[in-house]
Design a protein around this nucleic acid. Structure first.
Lengths: 194, 194
DNA sequence: GTCTATACCCCGATAGAC
DNA sequence: GTCTATCGGGGTATAGAC
């Protein structure tokens, strides 16, 4: 693994744990086992390195979500697989966390990858809901865009509630609630009778 | 307004905008129009002042939520009033924001007020859902605790998605989705026929 | 109660040797 | 590519005068 890669991964971890403001070049160098000069040789500065780290993190998250949503199963099954996937709840969301950082939100460049990830996620969830409706599996009265957004929000909000509580329980309740509401919107017996 | 009060309110604003790590004593003093010595006369330090600020913020938020949830109207109407209340979406949640700050989550004292606020909120939403079920207004098949958690999470997650997008639209979609799912769980015609 | 002075360390970056 | 030295500024707090 190259020095640049170790620097990027150290930055990813620190951004996740401490955010952009709370992450210093010195801390990155120590975690990566790289010197001052080495870091500034490979990257223009803290922001440049953060950008590389954010891009890598959002790319990975997209792959994972896509595996849940594009895999086998009905629309409801795929949504439940996304909602119920195991997560390191108390560590928070590596991408959602960044949205609370004023320096990231203030920078069009740093915010862009996060924006694109969540925009893609909502669109993807919206599409799966629409597929479920087309298959007669989900009630046609749902607004697919609103349903997609609330599913993504349930996960992100679940992280917030769990970190406030210091336990994963509120997260589990929130995703269970989302699953329950989706099932309530399911057309009864659709999977077998339609 | 006393100097101590101005210091607390300046801290509340800065915690909302920049978080705990991103807020310096100097910035607080400047915003409050107070000197160095003045701040350290009234408060033991940054953490002590932050604690006072967080307590005031969470107390205010609880009052506002209580007004939505304990006011007139059916259970569904009160939940919708909570979900659809006007919010400064792009500024984020003054309390939820704090859960992303490692120094706050790491301190039992600083986390406690945030924990209590969200714990109370979920319990309050759970109670309203249960009231709706008792009144025959909401489907008895809902798990009230899970439903209460996902309603709180929809709002918190809505903030995250909106800040990522740089527009309030994802927040609006998420709360609309939550409203839609609650309505789908409403017993048809319950308000008039039961 | 509020002020200024001072302390010590970290931040983010640059310079230039090797 | 990596190292050490250096820089100007800010973070957080204490001391002691007024």
């Amino acid at each position: 693994m190259s020095t640049a890669d170790r620097l990027i991964d150290a930055t990813r971890e620190l951004l996740w744990e401490r955010g952009y403001t709370g992450t210093s070049p010195k801390a990155i160098q120590q975690r990566a086992g790289a010197g001052q000069g080495s870091m500034y040789h490979h990257f223009a500065g803290k922001q440049d390195l953060a950008l590389a780290a954010i891009r890598r993190t959002t790319a990975r998250m997209r792959e994972v979500a896509q595996a849940d949503l594009a895999g086998p199963g009905s629309a409801v099954e795929r949504i439940e697989r996304y909602l119920l996937r195991e997560r390191e709840v108390l560590r928070g969301c590596p991408a959602g966390r960044l949205t609370q950082d004023p320096d990231i939100v203030a920078s069009a460049e740093l915010r862009a990858p996060v924006d694109e990830l969540f925009d893609w996620l909502r669109a993807r969830l919206t599409a799966v809901v629409a597929e479920g409706q087309a298959a007669g599996e989900l009630s046609a009265s749902l607004d697919p865009r609103a349903a997609g957004a609330v599913i993504a929000a349930a996960v992100q909000g679940g992280y917030v509630l769990a970190r406030a509580a210091g336990t994963a329980e509120p997260f589990e309740q929130a995703v269970r609630g989302a699953v329950g509401l989706v099932r309530a919107a399911a057309v009864r017996g659709a999977a077998t009778t339609n």
